[in-house]
Write a protein that binds this DNA or RNA. Sequence first.
DNA 1: TGAATATATGAACAAGTATTCATATAAAAG
DNA 2: CTTTTATATGAATACTTGTTCATATATTCA
Lengths: 120, 120
Amino acid sequence: MNDKSPCCDITVIHEELVEKVRRNMPPEEELFNLAEFFKVFGDTTRIRILYTLFQSEMCVCDIAYLLGMTQSAISHQLRVLKGAKLVRHRKEGRVVYYSLDDDHVKAIFDQGYKHITERN
Amino acid sequence: MNDKSPCCDITVIHEELVEKVRRNMPPEEELFNLAEFFKVFGDTTRIRILYTLFQSEMCVCDIAYLLGMTQSAISHQLRVLKGAKLVRHRKEGRVVYYSLDDDHVKAIFDQGYKHITERN
DNA sequence: TGAATATATGAACAAGTATTCATATAAAAG
DNA sequence: CTTTTATATGAATACTTGTTCATATATTCA
C-alpha cells in the first residue's frame, strides 16, 4: 500500500514508451486547430453546400432551394464555412455568390470517401 | 400580391443551374456518411489519440496517462474510433493494445494541416 | 477462491451546436 | 422616398456530444 492520493491513481504500464511518444507529439495548439477544422466537415448541411460549390459558384437562395432548406439556415452555415476560409463570396447587387476557396477540400473528401467505401 | 403561401416563399434565381447541379450531386446517404466520418476528427481528444497511435500501438492506461485524462474518457473515445474503423485492438491478458487501422488518416490530416497553415 | 487491476459501459450532466423565428441591413425598382 | 427582395444575424430552442461517476467484466496473482 503506497501513499498515492485517491484522486490521482493513474497507472502507466510502459512509461518509457509514453515519454518517447510524448516528445514527438505535435504542439497542442496544432491539434486543437486541426480538430476545429475537421469539425466544419462534421455536418451534413455543410458537406452538401461544399459539394454544391464543387460544381459551381452559387447564390444563397439557390443553395437554399437546391438543398430544400431555409435561407437563414444556409446563411448561418456559409458563415461557418467562411470562418474556416473554405468559401469566398462575391457581391453582385443584392445577390451574393459563394464559391470554393480551397484546394485541399476535394482531396480530403476523396480520401474520406475511400475510407468509408473500403470497409468490407 | 400573389397567392404564394407564406410558409413556402423560397425563391430561385438560377433555376437551370440549380437543376444541373442537383443532377450531379452524390446520393444523400453518401454525404451523410462522409459527415459522420469527419465528425470523428472534430474532437481534440480523438485527434490526440490518433496522433499517439501514429507513433506506436499503445494500451488504454498509457494513452490516458500520456494525455492526462481519465481511463474512462479514453475508453469511450476509443470506442468511437473503433466504430469508425480507425483503430483495431489486440488483447494481451488484462491489457488491451490499440493501434491504427487505416491508411487514409495520415493523408487526410496532412491535407488538413496544409489548409490551416497556408492561410495568410 | 478471493483480491487486485485493466478495461468497458450505462446514466447523468454540462457544454456545444444546428435550425427556426423575427428582424435588421442593403440594394434595386417603382 | 417607399416598397420589394436577397442576405445577414441575434436569440431561443431542441438536439447532440464529451466527460465524469459508479459499476460491471475479465484476467492475473496470491
